[in-house]
Simulated assay, not measured.
Amino acid sequence: MVKTESVGEVNAGRDLRRGVALLRQAGSGFGGRGGASGTGRGLRGAVLALVCCALALVIGGAARAEDLSGGYFGLGDARGMRIEVEQGDPAGDPAGLFIDSNGAEARFGGAWVGGGIEAVLAFPDSQVFLRLDAAPSGLVAIALPLDEDGQPIERASREMTFLRDGLAPPAQPELYQPEPDRADRVVDPDVFLASYSFWSPEGVSRGFSAIGARYRTMMRLYPMVHADVLWKLCGADGRLASEQRGEALRGQGVECAELLGLVEDLQRSGRFGEWKAAAEAEGADFLAAVQCARGYIVKREVCGPAAQKTAAAAVSLRTVATAIQPFR
């Protein structure tokens, strides 16, 4: 297990330059030496100065601390992760263990701040600022990676949900999230894959735009998934949907009228379940490829086969037209 520094109590408005300097001084001190409280105070000051806006909604309403002792398992994009809070009584110093989705462990000792726990996780090759707040039936965790100089990487921050041990997870897919209400939101591609079937056509259009060009292009390698997404896009209204359809249909050998008519026929004949089963089977392969590409999974037994399937798809020249041929 990897030992970490403690994070002391300080004001969120502590001078940022001093905090960044202390972050740099912390460098090699993580993972092997005891908690230097001065470094911890500077670290928290620097991190909070940069992420106060992101944390405001979580921290702001916490009038008192709750006992967070216990074990928690991750939901959604935190699946496979685990948090064990061993000393979660607000009367004492919090401590615990964080286990990521690849089994890497980091023990933490932190501080109670604004009703939640703040600490720094020191993994063998990275450091992560962590905040834990009580949520219905579990925890909300905000993780903010630190770069080699100990400075926060804001664009890589993540908010994750953990459920207390012994409780049943929700019936929706683990990665499910409500559809985006604006086109300018960022949507993780794995969240999109798990959720789009539950979204309105307009929500799918906004989500398809928000996953980024890289993953829209990657989706073309999985044409049954692409066909299922296109079917939703073809039913969406608005200029954004029109633009997304133009991009998604290019080179696929089909048009919206054909897709909409085919799915209507399948629904009427009772075969639409076969369509969805084919899309979901291909979607499982696509999801593994996406999560390996994003570094969320690094296990060879998962990413090796995913890479092979993606490479095979890249040379297969399959399109939506060929993928839906069995349903015509």
Rank of each mutant, 00 (worst) to 15 (best):
Y215E: 06
G253T: 03
L221Y: 05
H226Q: 02
P223C: 04
A277P: 08
R268S: 00
G273D: 09
A241S: 05
P223A: 02
R220E: 00
L233I: 02
M218C: 03
V254T: 07
S269G: 09
E264P: 01
W275H: 04
C234Q: 03
L230H: 04
L230A: 01
V229S: 09
L249S: 00
R245H: 02
C234L: 06
W275C: 00
A248N: 04
G238C: 11
G235I: 14
R216D: 05
C234F: 08
A236Y: 07
T217R: 05
L259I: 11
V229N: 15
V225Y: 10
L233C: 06
V263D: 04
G261F: 09
L259E: 07
E274Q: 13
D237L: 07
E264A: 10
L259G: 13
Q252F: 14
A278I: 05
R250C: 01
M224W: 12
P223H: 08
S269C: 10
E264R: 15
I211C: 07
G235W: 13
R220M: 04
E258A: 14
E255G: 15
L233K: 06
R220Y: 05
R250Y: 05
Q244A: 08
G212Y: 11
L260D: 08
A210N: 03
L259V: 13
A248Q: 08
Y215D: 10
E274P: 02
